[in-house]
Design a protein around this nucleic acid. Structure first.
Lengths: 177, 177
DNA sequence: CTGTATTTTCAGTAATTATTGAAACTTCAG
DNA sequence: CTGAAGTTTCAATAATTACTGAAAATACAG
């Protein structure tokens, strides 16, 4: 049971921005109550000690793990940091930083150039559209992250019903004019 | 200009689920008004003819390209399919299918098992939390896709202001009780 | 139909990315 | 301090993934 989960999240992990073993390491920590030593992880997953060290470094850069020191024990112990919600947030944010940020900044640069001919003009139009779409998306996801988990949950539960709520809001705003 | 965009989207493409050359091919088609022949693409990107063929196949499976036949010309021509919005939607949906679906179904399977001991009990609790979170996310993104582009745009523009709108909705619902 | 232009396939190879393991480094109990 | 226990680094290598190009398949103008 734990195995199949850990294995699967290794595969999935690669889609979420880190590689197989890093994904497995993280999954293992999430499913294990007790903090684990680097050796525990190495043995549980059958990977080298060095690989574990690199994986922990990677997960730290995502701020997904915390180190625990037991007194009278030289070893470091590791466990996942924060609630599941926090972790999901972290991954989300980190990916936005790594994927959306550089793209947006490149697009802005390109849009500063003057198109040299018809073709470039068309290309730039397209790029502007992409830029605007991504920027909207960027700002939106950013603002969603400032919402409390409860509010976000309400919003998610609302589903497409959010359409109706928007209509109501429209009416109210119009009345106020 | 076009080059830097195409190049960059090649790199980014890998994050969006397809590889470098497929990303570049798609970027090229988006920035080019005229439909392109497979040879055009091969030359423009400096990649082999066979690779183009495989890339087009991949992009078709994402329903991102359409084939155009010019009469009196044997060659096939290709261009991106649908508006930018449609394309973004397609990528989004396809990724949900490929990433979220299999994970959810694995999690459901695991949750059917009876935990054999304390450790597995803890693990299963964690898995249940993850399952619930992902399922909510899944349903939410699905319902967002049924919203009209305009409504979605309003929602995005609203940003964190959506919190206030939810409060208003709360009041109204309570009054109605 | 036929012959040729075009596309697709896929075995072989190249490029990239992940992993190991031994050496260097760090830490801290005694 | 010292040295053993522990961690990190990184060059070498393994595993994976992407790409090429030639051969097979397909499509279609004449």
């Amino acid at each position: 049971m734990i195995e199949s989960f850990v294995f699967h999240f290794g595969e999935m992990g690669s889609r979420w921005g880190f590689n197989r073993t890093v994904g497995q390491m993280f999954a293992l920590m999430v499913l294990t109550d007790e903090p684990l030593s680097a050796n525990d992880i190495s043995e549980a997953l059958g990977i080298s000690r060095g690989n574990v060290s690199m994986g922990l470094k990677e997960l730290s850069s995502w701020q997904l793990v915390q180190t625990i020191h037991k007194q009278g024990d030289r070893k470091d112990y590791y466990t996942n940091r924060g609630s599941l919600w926090d972790m999901a947030n972290k991954v989300f944010e980190e990916r936005r930083k790594r994927e959306l940020d550089p793209t947006l900044s490149l697009l802005r640069d390109i849009l500063l150039d003057k198109p040299a001919n018809k073709d470039e003009e068309y290309a730039q139009e397209q790029i502007r559209e992409i830029h605007d779409l991504l920027e909207n998306l960027f700002e939106w996801t950013q603002s969603l992250q400032t919402l409390s988990p409860q509010k976000l949950n309400t919003l998610m539960k609302l589903g497409s019903g959010v359409g109706k709520v928007l209509d109501i809001k429209d009416k109210i705003t119009k009345k106020a004019e």
